[in-house]
Amino acid sequence: MTSGIIKSDSRLLLFRTLEYGFKKKLMDNAFLNGLKKQGSQMSFAFAKRYYNLVYEPYLRHASYCVLGVINIGLTVSSNNRLDNAIDLVLQKGYVGIFREGWTRILNLVHYARNAERLSHKTAFEWEKDFAESFSAEPGREWIGYDEYLVNMLMYCNSNRGKNGTD
């Protein structure tokens, strides 16, 4: 058995996927340009829904949130594996993967609202808060997936006790 430090790639799964796919010639430049256009359009749509379109910092923040949600969707539905992730990106594009992540967020919102019925937070605010807590800023460590797991554990467990099913 060899003893040594295993160098793990700590970058975002999406970036690793794109780099690997481009290196192996599974994705060409035209495909990547299409993804880029989709990403910018989604950032605009996100900013329009949750902030506003005027201020530049808001647009930047919206793009980080979109990146985070895409990573949640990709990590969960590809089981954190590179080969599955490449297939997913090739099949669904950014929009499909975002929808995977968004479905997870909506589930979380459902559990969280059940768990904290006394709070006056609307579903809209819950969605926004979760998307912000999962946001991924390039150049910084991404803790979105851990956040997702912690939230899921916390709210699902508190739900189970209240319904009397456990």
Partner: peptide
């Protein structure tokens, strides 16, 4: 971005 906006927030 209207075409994307209509689709992206729909759950799977």
């Amino acid at each position: 971005y209207t075409s994307v906006e209509a689709v992206m927030f729909v759950p799977v």
